[in-house]
């Protein structure tokens, strides 16, 4: 473990908690893409299958359980409890356009052709693009509540911090995983225009307005 990965995990945890609290407190999931949340739940489910078979540390197990529980709780809030506030008309990204390439790529570019490894690879590639329906929805509605933009900033920062973690591990531990690195860079790059708007607007107290 290193400070970059720890900060990354904390940022990731923060994002998930911010989202849960926002929906629970405002009793509304307006502006939130249920599709992205479905993709995140799929990501954690296929990545943490080794939750019971491969014990890494208490921290690792704890965080996996929290991520799984929080992502399914968020889906429950969006599609069940506060379903009336789910903005279906703006959450229209065709996720099959994500699932197909991710599935093909995970079958072609992986470390080992075993079910567990393919599912892990699938989850890595899926996570890289899972935020697209949410970013698409924000661009479609033309704006995002500030709490939603804080959620996106924390979520985007987490994988950016993981990149620093991978640089650290390459030099200090001679460890690297090209699949995780490639997907992590893509994932972080997808947030770039949002990061620019967040830093130039939201941090100055303005609303996040995207050119529709």
């Amino acid at each position: 473990m290193n400070i970059f990965r720890l900060l990354g995990d904390v940022s990731h945890l923060l994002a998930i908690i911010i989202l849960l609290l926002k929906i629970w407190k405002t009793r509304s999931c307006a502006g939130i893409s249920g599709k992205s949340q479905l993709l995140f739940a799929l990501t954690y489910t296929t990545r943490y299958l080794d939750l019971v078979t491969n014990f890494v540390s208490v921290y690792n197990t704890f965080m996996k359980v929290v991520f799984l529980a929080a992502s399914y709780a968020t889906i429950w809030l969006i599609y069940m409890k506060f379903r009336a506030t789910y903005d279906q008309n703006h959450d229209t990204f065709r996720i099959e356009f994500l699932l197909l390439p991710v599935t093909i790529l995970s079958l072609v570019a992986n470390h080992e052709f075993t079910l567990i490894e393919i599912l892990w690879t699938w989850s890595i590639y899926l996570e890289a693009v899972a935020i697209l329906p949410q970013l698409f929805m924000v661009s479609k509605t033309g704006e995002a509540e500030s709490i939603t933009s804080h959620y996106l900033f924390a979520l985007g920062s987490y994988r950016g911090l993981y990149i620093l973690n991978w640089i650290y591990r390459y030099y200090m531990e001679s460890y690297y995983d090209l699949i995780a690195i490639f997907a992590g860079i893509l994932q972080t790059v997808l947030y770039c225009d949002f990061f620019y708007l967040y830093i130039t607007k939201v941090l100055r107290g303005q609303r996040l307005q995207l050119p529709a």
Binding site: D50, N54, N60, M63, W120, Y162, N165, E173, Y175, Y176
Partner: peptide
Amino acid sequence: EAAEAPKDEL
């Protein structure tokens, strides 16, 4: 190829 370290990252 990647080092065969166990998958210790989240």
